[in-house]
Design a protein around this nucleic acid. Structure first.
Lengths: 350, 350
DNA sequence: GTTAGCACTCTCAACTCCTAAGTGCTAACG
DNA sequence: CGTTAGCACTTAGGAGTTGAGAGTGCTAAC
């Protein structure tokens, strides 16, 4: 069955109204407030038909209508009215990113925080996958007790990990040499490439062979996502939304967000290509908890991936606001990276 | 008024019973289950007297008695029966720490997780204050775009921070030299000392002066606690306790734990000397939320501070279990550090 | 296709009633 | 004087009832 324009209009009204009020929408209120040229009975007929099509449901016979996940999807794709953020919100975004954001870790945190503040939902962020970043520097730093620390620097961050045992009797100077050799070998390579260094290459390094092996082993043990890559902001924001007056929903929610693994699965999935992705209820993705929606965006600017961010909240989510915030934050990030590059050019030009 | 032995006994019964069942304790149940030689009326008289002394309260006239914060304090100090963990729990601790825990960050996380798992409460941990650790190595690693990354290695961890701008036209080799000079200057110093390097010392370094300045500025900007120093485990454990069927309590709790700042304040206070500290309700500490208790332990082993850990939960907490777990985890940590040192010695002896 | 009208369903809050639990007090007891 | 039995009193909480209010579906007429 094709959807008439009036049906679409009514569906839009229902979704808008329900998102704003969290109260099931009745035929009467629609006829009175929004469709003054028809009677509530007519609206009722349309509502019944929309229900048959799967867009609306009722909790009980006399309870007004509520949009189904399918309705939200349709709403987002066709019905939602576009419009940008308020001046105030745009200002907020600009100010939030105006200070020098040194490295990716700080950036991930502030992006997540900004998203949560502006949307009033809980926000999750995960930084860019280091596998694809190029190694800019790599060093072994002695810790003085037979161990050294392997530090890897990429364009945007430092990867810390692994203390490495250094062979008996290797002097500090030798370690520095080894470190330099390693830096030369790996600089410019992507982390994923670095993992695949061939055995033959390693054996060329004679005395440093053992250390090299340890380094490569450490590289291989990197795997995503690691807990510290996932950040969470505004967990307490859920109480701004009436669905979380129900303790069961809170339990569900808290159980999910208290495991960084689960969070990573929820937002980290198949977001390589998609710019903004909306997952509503458990239908779309088995990882997303039933009765939750997740909206995520993957950012990149200046050719660099900047991570994936999203909000998690009730299905009755203010999708328009959320999507607009995500878009604007994306633009702001592009602006920053752009300016940084520009600054640098300016400096060179001086 | 002095407390008779019988009063103490009765108070102990009330606290034990209430901790186990979360149900207000009645005179009848005491007389029947625990004090079979007297009647409930006698118990009632004692209860009334304990109430007058401030140890017990009632929600309403016919609701049985509930311990006051004062009662819990007295219970912990005098009444609580000692006794160690089950074999199973001890095993769990041992296994949890048996694998190579490389650096402090991993350790903090696993300690916190173990505490939460064994106690069934939410656990918070904060790593040792790096201010007091000695710098073992410090390096500037080039990132290739006019910036370098400052990396500081202490005995237990790596402190990352600050990208530093390197002066125009400084070559990679020069940077390495500067890095070496810096390492020589700061190695062996505590971070807090390093912050206080005098202006005169810096000016000795001629061409590297500018870089040195940036390094010292970066050092100075370290301040505790930083968000990433605070870890949280088992936030969802609260739902195992009936007080969190009440949504208001959950809100309170979630609001506190969603701010790492607040958490740091709660557990990080004045724990320099105290081994195990118990804060009950808001009376003890304005940072601790009303209707919450916080039990913390500060660990150190082999002369090294290993951080402060604790559980946060309802006032009706199983203090015995919590304290015992904290004690045993402390012992286990001592064991590990001890063994590590031994291992190293063994190696050297070979 | 639209509408008015009406019977029907369901929730929710208020109210009452009742029971179970526990206490405080008093008077008697050893 | 401590202990005890007995009893009146208080309160929470569950079950049942009622009435109002909201909203729907259906039917018949326009």
């Amino acid at each position: 069955m094709k959807m008439s324009d009036r049906k679409k209009k009514i569906l839009q009204i229902v979704v808008d109204e329900y998102i704003n009020t969290a109260v099931p929408v009745s035929s009467k209120s629609i006829a009175e407030k929004h469709l003054t040229d028809v009677s509530s009975a007519t609206v009722r007929n349309e509502l019944a038909s929309l229900e048959e099509l799967g867009y609306l449901t009722q909790f009980h016979t006399s309870g007004g209508r509520v949009p189904s996940p399918q309705a939200y999807r349709f709403y987002i794709e066709e019905l939602m009215e576009k419009g940008n953020l308020s001046e105030k919100d745009l200002d907020y975004i600009e100010k939030a990113f105006s200070d020098k954001s040194n490295d990716v870790e700080h950036l991930v945190k502030s992006v997540s925080r900004v998203i949560s503040e502006l949307t009033d939902y809980t926000s999750v962020g995960i930084g860019p996958n280091p596998d694809e970043e190029r190694i800019r520097n790599i060093a072994l730093l002695s810790c003085g007790d037979g161990r050294a620390l392997l530090v890897i620097v990429t364009g945007t961050r430092i990867l810390r990990d692994s203390f490495i045992d250094i062979p008996e009797g290797m002097s500090g100077e030798e370690l520095e040499n080894a470190s330099r050799v390693i830096a030369k070998l790996f600089s410019g390579k992507a982390l994923s490439e670095a993992k695949d260094v061939e055995e033959e290459v390693l054996s060329e390094f004679g005395q440093y062979r053992q250390v090299m092996h340890e380094v490569v082993d450490a590289l291989k043990s990197y795997s995503r996502p690691r807990d510290e890559d996932v950040v969470l902001s505004g967990a307490d924001k859920i109480f701004k939304h009436p669905e979380y007056e129900d303790i069961e929903n809170v339990k569900n929610f808290l159980t999910v967000i208290s495991s960084k693994d689960k969070l990573a699965e929820i937002i980290g999935d198949d977001n390589d290509e998609i710019q903004i992705s909306v997952k509503i209820g458990s239908c779309d993705d088995k990882e997303v908890p039933e009765d939750c929606s997740v909206v995520t965006a993957t950012y990149s600017a200046g050719g660099k991936n900047l991570g994936t961010y999203g909000v998690i909240g009730p299905i009755r989510m203010d999708y328009h606001k959320v999507i607009t915030v995500l878009e604007n934050v994306g633009k702001a990030l592009e602006g920053i990276v752009g300016n940084k590059n520009k600054d640098k050019k300016d400096k060179k030009d001086e």
